[in-house]
Write a protein that binds this DNA or RNA. Structure first.
Length: 364
DNA sequence: AACGCGGGGAG
DNA sequence: CTCCCAGCGTT
């Protein structure tokens, strides 16, 4: 596109956005902190999922200082069920830096802001353009999909080569005078019109510029590298009852589901029964001898790189005191107090069954 | 450059 | 069920 076409592209995009943009809670604020929180949540996560979390998080942590001083447990509880918990841990750490080093003001300099934990090129460009009107083009999944179609760009969007290619394209198209509006308009077109499946080209404000639309080649873009098949892992977990309480353990602070609480258990070995694995894992992980009383339920859950089938057992404590090998903390809790602890989604799927069964199950 | 990291929606 | 989606940090 020449400069005249680029101007028209920018104008049509923003005119459309003025009329068709969704009403979203983070579009009613100019507070850089709130926009930052929204962008962290929106990373890898769809708008409709984020909305209730955003309201609760902002109500609980309305400003940087409060978040900076909060306990890790409280921050994770606010994030419970949203996934990618490193986002919450990094946001928490970053808030402490903003509070202490920048007096609570979110830095508006690229180097300063993107040096914060969890702030990369996307969140950097999004927050600096939307909150501070700095001319950085966002390049997220929506933008890459739209640009791949408009320019029939065969660069795989999920490969490392795509980084520079789509970055250069996005930079060349950015409206330097209104970068925040322009960036949001382009992403909104990706979300509402130029969708992954069944794009609504007739309603698209930039369809006249789009080579994919003109040539009928949309179904070939964006191109992507094949993903690897995900293995399925069987897990046994035990709800260990003792004196009307149950045992939960806390995962180490980093890595998968870092810092969350769960019922102890682990992988079922090849050729091993689920019950045996449950007894073995609990002996190894928390040092307790238990008996398996009943099979409560089976839960299937998909992660990014593997799937699990979780066999959940009701168990009774026989003897031994808790000696942790893996987990970093433990509690004997009343089942109704589980709400106070952040737990993984896979655990949330069977906890309601525990509460319903409480009278018969916790009859000590 | 490749991998680890959750969860939700569409079909 | 299966397939699709996707920024940042670590290695």
């Amino acid at each position: 596109m020449d400069s005249k076409e680029i101007s028209a592209f920018q104008q049509q995009l923003q005119d459309w956005y003025g009329i068709n943009q969704r009403e979203l809670p983070w579009r009613h604020t100019t507070d850089p902190y709130r926009i930052w929180v929204s962008e962290v949540m929106l990373q890898q996560t769809q708008v409709n999922t984020v909305i209730p979390y955003y309201y609760r998080f902002i109500e609980r942590f309305p400003e940087v200082a409060g978040l900076a001083r909060a306990r890790s447990q409280a921050v994770l509880k606010s994030w419970e069920g949203l996934g990618y918990y490193a986002r919450a841990r990094n946001l928490h750490k970053a808030a402490a830096v903003v509070d202490s080093r920048y007096g609570g003001r979110v830095p508006d300099d690229w180097q300063d802001f993107t040096a914060l934990p969890g702030v990369g090129p996307y969140i950097g460009a999004a927050v600096l353009s939307i909150a501070y009107s700095h001319p950085y083009a966002v390049v997220d999944g929506n933008v890459k999909r739209v640009l791949a179609r408009v320019f029939e760009d065969p660069t795989p969007v999920n490969g490392s080569a795509g980084h520079g290619a789509f970055r250069r394209l996005a930079d060349s198209l950015l409206d330097q005078s209104r970068p925040g509006i322009y960036n949001q308009a382009l992403m909104e077109v990706g979300a509402l019109v130029c969708k992954p499946a069944n794009p609504r080209c007739a309603d698209c404000p930039i369809n006249t510029f789009c080579l994919g639309n003109r040539h009928g080649s949309l179904d070939r873009y964006p191109q992507r590298n094949k993903r690897k098949p995900v293995p399925e892992i069987r897990i046994a977990a035990g709800v260990i009852r003792r004196n009307g309480r149950v045992l939960i353990t806390r995962r180490k602070p980093e890595g998968l589901l870092g810092g969350l609480w769960e019922f102890p258990g682990g992988k079922i070995h090849e050729g091993e029964s689920a019950e045996t694995a449950c007894r073995r894992e609990i002996k190894e992980e928390v040092g307790l001898n238990i008996v398996v009383d009943a099979h409560l339920t089976q839960v299937r859950h998909a992660y990014t790189h593997f799937k699990i089938v979780l066999e959940v057992f009701l168990c009774d404590h026989v003897d031994g005191n808790v000696r942790l090998n893996g987990p970093v903390d433990h509690r004997w809790i009343k089942i109704e107090d589980i709400d106070q602890y952040p737990v993984p989604r896979a655990n949330l799927k069977f906890i309601p069954k525990l509460r319903v069964k409480k009278p018969e199950v916790f009859n000590e």
